[in-house]
Design a protein around this nucleic acid. Structure first.
Lengths: 340, 340
DNA sequence: ATATACCCCGACAGCGGTGTCAGGCTGAGA
DNA sequence: TCTCAGCCTGACACCGCTGTCGGGGTATAT
């Protein structure tokens, strides 16, 4: 093991193994056509010396940085952190480093921000999270810079772009099946902001699923939110003051669903006795309310790992693809049969 | 501006400005003894060519990486993200990159994990967040590697180490003053885990503040939590079932305070009418409950920025220091005079 | 005008790897 | 046994920037 502190370089390894530095380099990089015997010698020397390649030197010589970036726009705590964790794990496993980048896609100077980010940190690739992945300016910047990127849950079909998405529609269908099965017939729906693609397709999926069961979509009480807690309160209050009051509310993400809890508390409405609530994402907040929130789990971790893989594969010349992940129903305490 | 795409190197700038590359380097690095006229020429050339120094080359030549790490152990969403954001901003401002590192300080192989992290990513410094900052193994690894580090809210006095802390005691005193002023006399206290230094001193501060006002600390109903939501529920239930029931509960962080909300809801206890609740940190969850949580704001952003500065200054040979930040009371809807 | 410091600036050698390319070794075919 | 691919391996330049150090310029004193 590495008793040796202080920088061991490739030259040391080469000398120790009695081969050339280039050969060591080949072994390190898993290049083809390296005879097993050579590889063994080198591997042993590496182990004995505790050698670790120097990032900077590799980056400089190879012209790549071994850095992958994740671009965030809306730092919604739970979602963001899940993405970070997933990407982090995948990166480390691949010998890459993860760097976080933030922009404000709503601002006027998006292009300048992107220019700045892309220029200053020489990334090998970038994962673009919603809603940045739907920003024209962001994609253009990426494109002109020629940086490989993969879109996470993009709201639109980008011709040649790689993407990783979740089957939200199926997830929503499950949710509806669940609620319908419990006996609910009067529904409330809280949409997300129009800038997020998810807002559209989750709404469509919800209304379609209802229609499929013979319900009249026109009876659904809708309200708009911002994918955050406080907007959920407002939307929740709006919906819960309708007559007849819905017995179940679908909030398009967990944060807004939590807001509905607050709204219900204010109005003295008990969950799940008087009202069932479902969210979407199964983010951290879903288990931070009481009763815990029934929701549809989006496999964010897996999706992010896939995104990293896509990025790495593109380096090897492979074409990017479009992967789809399934959402799964997570039934918790916030849903129950309607009373009466 | 930079119409020019494709790598502009320091050589290009030097040629364009009619100076040597070393002079450009000097200007870039703000080295002393550079005549204004020279600096002006270089700056102009840099601007005209849209030059950005290459990270890898700088890192390789200078023997530093321009990377700062933040070490996390307990990915408590809100806290973690606030730290990341603060550190991110400070890093970018200083021309550094931020890399996130996770470990499991409770695991047996902490040393191996640290070894791995420290070896593979050649950081220039590291910010160590709680509770990792109190892990013997972590600090030892840092020390033997000789990597500059700064402790964020450490639970103990580490002789030569730099640290940034918040004045939790004062924050807790404020909280007590607030509750006492409202008329509360029977209190509940939810502690954090023993591995966190904060658990100890927040408890002491709370009991002292009460004693100072003539209350008998022995009447305080205590329960232990884990600094997370669900443990807050359990602790809350425990406390709220006591007779006589406390009229106010201090949970040592916001997550557990939110748990108390859930516990109260289960027992049909109304906040703030029947029970006042206060937390600590003013993290994201404080505004994700209803009524919003009265808490003590810990200036995490500022603290993190300070930590980065400390790290950067140490590079310049300055000695590290120990900075202290004040906590401020944030009165929201979860506190009110006790009923009756 | 000349000497004496002092202050700037430039030439050059690496930092630690990787890409290129030529040469050596291997095994198959004659 | 000799020839000729074909597969491995090694020598070397170079990626873009910074540290060192010596030379030249500038200002001040004489």
């Amino acid at each position: 093991m590495s008793n040796t502190m202080k920088k061991v370089t490739i030259t040391d390894v080469a000398r120790h193994a009695g081969v050339s530095i280039k050969s060591v380099s080949r072994v390190i990089n898993d290049e083809p056509s390296v005879r097993p015997a050579l590889k063994a010698k080198v591997d042993q020397a590496v182990a004995e010396l505790g050698y670790r390649p120097n990032f900077a030197a590799r980056a400089l010589a190879a012209g790549r940085s071994f850095f992958l970036g994740v671009l965030f726009d809306n730092p919604s705590a739970s979602y963001t952190l899940q993405v970070i964790n997933g990407a982090y794990a995948a990166c480390r496993a691949a010998g890459y480093q993860l760097v976080i980048e933030n922009i404000d896609a709503a601002a006027r100077d998006v292009s300048a921000q992107m220019e700045d980010i892309l220029h200053s940190s020489r990334l090998d690739g970038m994962i673009v999270t919603p809603p940045a992945c739907d920003s024209e300016a962001v994609l253009t910047a990426l494109e002109t810079k020629g940086l490989p990127y993969v879109l996470l849950a993009p709201g639109h079909e980008e011709p040649g772009a790689s993407s990783v998405a979740s089957n939200d529609a199926a997830g929503v269908f499950e949710l509806v099946r669940h609620l319908w099965g419990l006996g609910h017939r009067r529904f409330g729906l809280i949409n997300g902001p129009a800038t997020h693609g998810a807002s559209h397709w989750r709404r469509e999926a919800f209304l379609n699923a209802l229609a499929e069961r013979g319900a009249d979509p026109a009876t659904v009480v809708m309200a708009d939110g911002e994918f955050n807690f406080s907007s959920g309160i407002g939307a929740g209050l709006h919906i819960l003051r309708q007559t007849p009051r819905p017995t179940a509310i679908f909030a398009q993400n967990d944060d807004m669903a939590a807001g509905v809890f607050a709204a219900a508390a204010q109005l003295g409405i008990k969950i799940p006795d008087d009202l069932s609530v479902v969210g979407f994402d199964d983010s951290w907040i879903a288990k931070s309310v009481w009763p815990e929130l029934t929701t549809s789990r989006q496999p964010i971790w897996e999706m992010t790992e896939a995104a990293v893989q896509l990025l790495l594969n593109r380096r090897k010349g492979e074409k990017g693809g479009n992967q789809m992940f399934e959402c799964t129903l997570v039934a918790r305490g916030s849903t129950a049969p309607p009373r009466g």
